[in-house]
Simulated assay, not measured.
Amino acid sequence: MTSRQDADSAARWRLILGRYSDRAFDQVQLDREQLRLERTLDYLYNREYERRGQAAGQPRHGSLDNSQLTAINWLNNARKLFPQSTFERIQMQAVERYQLDALLKDEKSLRSLEPTPQLAKALLSMRGRMNAQTREAVRDIIRQVVEQIVARLKPNFVHAVQGRRNRFRRSVIVNSQNFDWRRTIQQNLKHYHTGLNKLIIQQPFFNARVQRHLPWTVVLCVDQSGSMMSSVMYSAICASILASLPAVKVHLVLFDTHIADLSHLAHDPVEVLLTAQLGGGTDIAKAVAYCEKYITQPSRTIFTLISDFEEGGSVAHLLNAVSRLNSQQVKLLGLAALDEQANPVYDMQMAQKLNERGMSVAALTPEHFAQWMAEVMQ
């Protein structure tokens, strides 16, 4: 390893170790850019020492800026100094782990944050610490995140739910998923070029899609206990997308040990998220029994339970309710909770019992949930 590589390696270790690098790397010289990195990291991670009852101590170096580093300056510096993925992680730790008061209480600082689903969930969990001005800034962040997710998910739901291919009716809409290769080959055989040994396609053919006009009722029964924020967020967004479709009626019910019927807000995921109150125990049986009142056409109803299936109420009542719905030919779906890495986190034994009573249970991302629901509607 060259001396230059040795120096770069030592500098990286000094930045990684922070204050604990003083003794081992005291002679390491940092350039101007590295000093900015160190100062930006210290601004946040010195709070870890304070949390553990250790004094953060004085900075090792004089200021590189004319003014003291404030939360807003720190955000701007971090955004410039680090790659986007790294910046988003640092931003999340500032809000979620260290609960940086300057970010939570200052509207300008909040509006400087990068809107991400992780940030939205962290801010929603700390709504009680906001003043009137910062609550509006949080609402704007939530709205931006929701709009981003809706833009990504809505085409999946529209395509999956609104129709299936009809090989007997033709479409003028060019769409690779609707391409009718059999008829295209059959109708263009007369254009086969013997010299080139190729089939010349002069007119491609596409299948139309059948629009479903018989209405469906979709009941989303969403567990909002414990650490279910991810599930609540995506459930609210999926509910709003389904509510926008012409042949779907949506009911949205959130529960822990109490019931929050937000069906009247199903079209507005931002308001749903600002209304949701995470915490408390779990009484799934009570929530399922409540939702039964919305099932007036069982064969045209999809009941979706979104939960970790860790029942705190009566297991017997829950299983009886699911069996009762199944006997009425209600389409029963159980969507298991996922963690931050999209790994399933749920009570598998309870999921198995629900499955034995007629509920199909799966751990799916929202994109795959759209396709699953479409298959049920066939």
Rank of each mutant, 00 (worst) to 15 (best):
Q371N: 08
D8E: 12
N188P: 04
L325Q: 13
E271S: 10
S314T: 08
F168Y: 13
A342Y: 12
R32Y: 12
G279A: 11
F205K: 11
N156I: 02
V146N: 14
Q186P: 02
L124V: 00
R79P: 00
W181C: 05
Q54W: 15
Q297A: 14
M228P: 04
Q378D: 14
Y49H: 09
Q29I: 14
N188V: 11
K198Y: 08
V232P: 02
G334M: 05
R167F: 07
L278C: 10
S21N: 06
Q202R: 13
L325M: 15
R212M: 09
P155R: 12
V172M: 08
F309P: 03
G279V: 10
R164M: 14
M92K: 01
A374N: 09
E311G: 06
A160H: 12
A337E: 01
S314Y: 05
R324D: 12
G57M: 13
M1Y: 11
E48V: 10
M377A: 15
Y346Q: 05
D180P: 05
L17I: 01
S125M: 05
A236S: 10
E292I: 01
K108N: 13
L254C: 13
S327W: 03
G53C: 10
I173G: 01
A208S: 15
S85T: 04
H317N: 10
E367L: 14
Q378N: 14
W74I: 03
A370F: 12
S67R: 15
I173S: 06
S109Q: 13
V322H: 07
Q371A: 11
L75M: 09
Q99L: 06
W74L: 04
L124M: 00
V28C: 00
L123Y: 01
S360Q: 15
G62E: 15
Q68E: 15
K154A: 15
L199P: 02
V361K: 00
E375G: 03
Q5M: 07
Q224K: 14
P204F: 04
I142G: 08
D256R: 01
S67F: 05
G57E: 15
T86H: 05
G18S: 14
L273F: 09
V146P: 07
W74A: 03
Y290I: 01
R167D: 10
D347R: 07
R52N: 10
Q34T: 04
A351I: 09
G62F: 13
Y192N: 07
V138A: 03
Q349V: 14
V161W: 07
Q187T: 10
N77L: 11
E367F: 15
F206C: 04
L119T: 00
Q29L: 09
W216T: 10
Q91H: 04
Q203L: 07
Q58K: 15
N46T: 09
G281C: 13
M1T: 09
E292P: 02
R182K: 15
Q328H: 13
L41S: 09
E107C: 08
L35R: 07
A10R: 11
W74N: 03
A102F: 06
L104F: 08
P83N: 05
L274R: 14
